[in-house]
């Protein structure tokens, strides 16, 4: 398996203080596809993503394998994993205000990151930063480089965070609830952006979200987790339209779209 093939997670287990958090997770996240990881809080979807990034919870015992580009990520030393993270393995989280430094300009954060991983000089790094901001469709990228995070809206900040993630041309992107904090109109734009980046750059995107509607819009395949196990996986159409596992069926039925509106129309006055 080469880097262009994406990720293959097999039999991933994780134990923390004697408790089994992940219990044999198998999933494949191919390049050029969005693989959705669904489930409720505590199902283990975020822990799975963090383990891919080499950041499992402190004190946890991890088993199984995560194959990427011919190597098992779980066999890497912390130093080797650090070199991959932010370079080959990128990440985007829910709250961009927490992932960006409030007191360093956007340009500063982008170029620091780019210079650290790609070993470019200042001018080259700046050129790449500009290119990246254009790619994530931040308006007026040259001015944006000089601004600080507080000068942007939540949607723009998330675009910038995505820009930092793709700046070093990664092959895997772990996106943990990337649109959950955004308003629906802004969410639509960020979903479009992530999907286009996945298609254009051939990224293997691991999309972690509890929102099945977002999943249904963006993911090619959906993997449903519960209690640290994969209960169902398949194409987005099959999983949403004809869920096999009772838990998936419950999740789909809990969607507001699947229920009738109120029976009483108009108020009584």
């Amino acid at each position: 398996m080469s880097a262009a093939d994406g990720l293959r997670i097999s039999g991933l287990t994780l134990e923390l203080r004697g408790q089994r958090i992940l219990d044999g997770v198998d999933l494949v996240a191919p390049a050029g596809q969005v693989t959705g990881l669904a489930g409720e809080s505590g199902s283990g979807k975020t822990v799975t993503g963090m383990t891919v990034l080499g950041l499992p919870p402190a004190g946890s015992v991890v088993g199984g394998s995560i194959e990427y580009g011919g190597t098992d990520l779980l066999r890497l030393s912390a130093r080797q994993h650090n070199a991959l993270r932010g370079d080959q393995l990128a990440m985007v989280f829910q709250d961009p205000t927490a992932s960006l430094h409030p007191m360093i300009s956007v340009g500063g954060q982008l170029t620091d990151h780019i210079r650290h991983h790609l070993h470019l000089n200042r001018a080259q790094a700046r050129a790449r930063a500009l290119e990246v901001l254009e790619q994530v469709r931040v308006p007026e990228p040259a001015q944006a480089l000089r601004k600080y995070p507080h000068e942007f809206s939540g949607g723009q900040l998330q675009r910038i965070a995505i820009g930092i993630a793709i700046a070093c041309r990664p092959s895997v992107l772990v996106a943990d609830e990337p649109t959950t904090a955004l308003d629906v109109t802004v969410q639509a734009g960020v979903m479009r952006l992530l999907r286009d980046l996945c298609d254009d750059l051939g990224l293997a995107v691991l999309l972690i979200t509890h929102d099945l509607a977002v999943m249904s819009s963006m993911a090619d395949t959906i993997v449903v987790m519960r209690h640290g196990r994969v209960v169902e996986s398949g194409s987005r159409y099959d999983v949403i339209r004809s869920p096999q596992h009772p838990y998936t069926r419950d999740l789909v039925e809990a969607l507001p779209d699947h229920r009738p509106g109120p029976t009483r129309s108009g108020g009584q006055s």
């Binding site: 969410q187 249904s216 819009s217 963006m218 969607l255 779209d257």
Partner: peptide, 22 residues
């Protein structure tokens, strides 16, 4: 209309809502 158009649908069809920026 814009707000409604932006709501993603869980229909399994993979359509991302198309919303023009404000």
């Amino acid at each position: 209309q814009r707000l409604l158009a932006a709501i993603p649908r869980a229909d399994g069809l993979g359509t991302i809502p198309d919303v023009a920026p404000a």
